[in-house]
């Protein structure tokens, strides 16, 4: 990744490569935007109104955090909002880590930096850092980030309207959809034995605490399971590095 900005800054991007990056960014945008519909539907099922749902997609704009927020207020209502904020914020830390890696690559300042920060998410980062050329990386970041933003917001609106029209969310299995959504968000991260260990411990902590404390708190407490990662991975020293580049 650091090798990217050594090369070819300032040169023109080959038209073939340019088209390729556009296509890649837009296809990620379409694929990611599509599941904004599930976010919209689940958010209104969790008790948010249409505008609150839309505000999360437009202003928070980071899928995992948005799902966490509605998951917790869906279970605990207004009383669970502090826990919902804490959980969505902890999930948002990774965007800050992406930004650390992107700041040199993108070379943005002022207003552009604010815009870049807003669209710094899993998908835009992944497309940017997978390019072998700094111009392609910048183009990939913006095309992906902006297309996800537009489609994610449009699909959120569609989902919220559908969700409002559905009536009883349980009858349509929307609670099952929420569980499936969290499973699908977690799945790609379970790449190592350590990751699985952390996930299992977190699940046990959360379920164990659930009967005793207010809704949302078990999820925050389970974040402590991440401390298992403090010590180095058991296998070769290279493992952490490999995992990082894969994620």
């Amino acid at each position: 990744m650091t090798a990217v900005h050594e090369k070819s800054a300032g040169t023109r991007l080959d038209p073939v490569l340019r088209r390729q990056v556009w296509r890649q960014g837009l296809s990620v945008g379409v694929a990611t935007g599509a599941y904004g519909i599930s976010f919209g539907a689940l958010a209104v099922a969790a008790g948010l109104n249409l505008w609150q749902t839309q505000a999360l997609s437009a202003l928070m704009f980071t899928g995992g955090s948005q799902f966490a927020f509605i998951g917790i207020v869906g279970g605990g209502g207004l009383g669970a909002t502090p826990a919902a904020i804490a959980a969505s914020s902890m999930l948002g830390i990774r965007n800050g880590l992406y930004a650390l890696e992107l700041t040199q690559l993108l070379g943005v300042t002022r207003l552009r930096r604010l815009a870049a920060a807003h669209v710094t998410i899993d998908e835009s980062t992944a497309v940017a850092v997978s390019q072998g050329d700094v111009r392609a990386a910048r183009l990939g970041f913006w095309v992906t980030g902006l297309s996800v933003f537009v489609l994610w917001n449009l699909m959120t609106l569609a989902g919220a309207l559908v969700g409002n029209a559905l009536g009883d969310p349980k009858q349509w299995g929307l609670d099952g959809a929420a569980c499936a959504a969290f499973t699908a968000l977690l799945w790609p991260r379970l790449k190592s034995r350590d990751a699985v260990g952390i996930a299992v411990l977190a699940a046990v902590i959360a379920i164990g605490l659930s009967p005793a404390v207010p809704a949302g708190v078990p999820v925050i407490a389970a974040a402590a399971a991440a401390l298992l990662a403090w010590r180095a991975p058991r296998t070769a020293a290279g493992q952490a590095r490999t995992e990082e580049t894969q994620s």
Binding site: G64, A68, R94, L186, I198, S210, V219, A222, A226
Partner: peptide
């Protein structure tokens, strides 16, 4: 490493609580 592991712990906890708890946190 810990910050990279945070999403794993939080998402696993969300899967667990959304799936296996009923009203008032009962199993």
């Amino acid at each position: 490493r810990v910050t990279a592991a945070l999403p794993i712990a939080l998402l696993a906890a969300l899967v667990a609580t959304q799936t296996f708890t009923g009203p008032h946190g009962s199993l």
